[in-house]
Design a protein around this nucleic acid. Sequence first.
RNA 1: GCCCGAGUGGCGGAAUUGGUAGACGCAGCGGACUCAAAAUCCGCCGCCCUUAAAAGCGUGUCGGUUCGACUCCGACCUCGGGCACCA
Length: 872
Amino acid sequence: MQEHYDPAAIERAAQDYWGQSAAFAAEETADKPKYYCLSMFPYPSGRLHMGHVRNYTIGDVLARFMRMQGRNVMQPMGWDAFGLPAENAAMQNGVPPAKWTRDNIAYMKRQLQSLGLAIDWRREVATCDPAYYRWNQWLFLRMLETGIAYRRTGVVNWDPVDQTVLANEQVIDGRGWRTGALIEKREIPMYYLNITRYAQELLDSLADLSGWPERVRLMQANWIGRSEGTEISFAYAPELVQLMGGAGALKVFTTRADTLFGATFVAIAAEHPIATAAAAGNARIAEFVAECKRGSVMEADLALQEKKGIGTGLHVLHPFTAKPIEVWIANYVLMGYGEGAVMGVPAHDERDFEFATRSGIAIKTVVKSATGAYETVSAPWQDAYGQYGITVNSGEFSGLEFKAAVDAIAAALAARGIGAKRVQFRLRDWGISRQRYWGCPIPLIHCAACGDVPVPDAQLPVLLPENLVPDGSGNPLGKTPSFYECTCPKCGAAARRETDTMDTFVDSSWYFLRYASFDNTQAMVDARARYWMPVDQYIGGIEHAILHLLYSRFWTKVMRDLKLPSVSEPFSNLLTQGMVLNHIYSRHPADGRRQFFDPAQVTSSGPEGSRRHTAPLPTGELVEVRYDGLGTMSKSRNNGVDPQSLVERFGADTVRLFVMFTAPPEQTLEWSDEGVLGASRFIRRLWTAVHEHVRAGVVAKLDVAVLDDGQKALRRTAHHTLAKVTDDIGRRRTFNTAIAAVMELLNALGRTTDTAPQGRAVRHEAFRIVAICLSPIVPHVCHALWQALGAKEALIDAPWPAPDAQAVVQDEIEISVQVNGKMRARVGVAASADEATVRRIVLADERVQRFVGTALPRKLIYVPGKLVNIVV
RNA sequence: GCCCGAGUGGCGGAAUUGGUAGACGCAGCGGACUCAAAAUCCGCCGCCCUUAAAAGCGUGUCGGUUCGACUCCGACCUCGGGCACCA
């Protein structure tokens, strides 16, 4: 018997047992209900960070819990292995991304294994393996056939110095991160996936995802952004007819057709054809259009920039009054949304109002509030009235409520063929072309004679050469003739292979299906996916709430519609974990770059509020540093905590216990070295307590009929704890409170000194409950304790017990008593007492008397079994 | 700027459906054990007034609903996540 807690030996023994018995190899079987437990696969960045540990521990707790609850559990793991960091690492140290990535995978896999995760490693996938990404290519070709995938131009960040496309992340304050050059927008041909075809379904089926957090569903719904509005055509005025070379109309989309008579300008995007035409003959306009094309493509940047515009001197005609309305080019109109043009109604739209007041554009009120409070809105203008109301100054459409006005105006427009009601989505089609090396090649060939020719299925996969090293200027595939030189599959002439690769979101949009069909070399997915899908529990960071989850939902539906073994919704239940934070310390020497310091190296002293912090430089010299608050752990801030060294020092169980105890899973988790010590202390205390109990010898058979009050009380606590932990893990997913409950039970066990045979029998049962309850969280130590407690079977195969309902029954309960809503006393009553009895006991209580006095209670609220509130 | 969250003791957090605010842990303080230290064990631990008891105050701010609000509603402040090429 080990008297001393030795995590390394205990964890090795438990992991050896699970490995030798192939405990986590999942097979399709009809015997038990399946449970597909999936954590978002990691990007192989080099080393595991605390966010990974948190993510995978949550998944492991649920997988182990469900297994004990009798489910056939599958928990797989893989690698999101394509992406930008590998190219950056390659540029830094000259190692090809493939080698860097595969080395990282090997190292991180060992780290994951040391955490004791119940993973079926046979199913491991890496998205950079041709055996995986060939199916990206294969499905892309199917999407081309059905028109889901198509080619058109798109806007990218262009670094004019490096002559290369930059990711948004590589644009800092509008400049290229390596060159410092001002970034330009550039239009290039790209492939798109028609996700908007699925917009309505993606929105509608959010209602079915009851296992998803409400906030994620809300975010997705807002992202899809369905709006019902009216499309309106403004006919060109003569000078515009001339400029555009013929009669025509400028289309706008608006959700406020009721304000049409208040339109005093029309604003178009800088990329709009009319803007291009206007710029051709006017230097000032050309300069403004060019200015709009500078800067990054990020929406956050666009939204923050000052709203600017320029009048074109060109006009369109109001559909009802035929009055000319000037066309403006504005930097806040997005070409990608609606028609790339909006009507400007300054009186009733905040943004139009701001723009109009600055540009000297007329403001015309056409809506008043129902009460007339805004009827007199006029110069000097204060703000826009953006609410719904009654139309005024709108010709035959005056005097109507919002909906009636919209209906009437839309009907009148439709009758003349110059407008109609229409649904517009904010969601845009998904551009998947990336001008980068380390990704899945897009399987297309450009032939001078035949155009864009898909690579025939038989020639898949298009292999990505693995020995290239990017240098920061352009895509190395474009400089590798052995890759891009090919022949046209149609005509056999010399042709050029597409050198763009796919967005890595493609790779992660279906990996959960591949785990179920991991070894199939003939098909992307097979019937086993029907068995395992949908994922019963998906766990990952809240930062993926929109993009990854939306793309995965879309991709899954596309596969369904291609009649592949898929489902309509990939993830039945979703748990979005919070980020892991740590303190940030830095200093900014006058003569150099800002330096960050490892919080573990910082010493703090001095009084609250004016603490001073010092940390050593690499030279050993101590310098004063500044505290910058909490932030996500990251390499650049030097505030990461290495899970590996903690596992080596305290054991995986301590690390797992700490991350599960310190905060509920959906909240951010603040790192604390002391907290880790606390977790370690608890496990040692548990180890000692069980072994002291076991050392005292044989335990009598429990006979619940003969227990005394103290024994009954301990047994009640034990079964109450079991019920709470079952609910906290199984339903609430509040692992922190489950652990707290077990800590309380262990505290209660520590307070008892009952050495009578039945006293020890109750303790024995309680210790078994402790081991069961903690086993999903700290599986190694519980595996050992279970054996110490004399069990024949391994804990991993023990069923999760149901609490004994008899054990938790209480004879006397406590009623809280309030007087006028303030807590004044607690009284004990029999659990069976009726309201009249409770009333009598409460009113007779001396403390209650003191506050009620001689006053007659006006009202008495009774919450059975809980509370009485006396109103006097 | 837009969308979505969060804010409770010295600190992390608990309070599950509107019904005992501060469970559990960390830090701290006091004690036991020890030659001593570490480890371990026991006790105290929101603020204020106080010898004590009792009262009063207290869940970011301001207001509202209710017999009763950390919880619901309105406005605001601060922090965090996302904004389509980081993953």
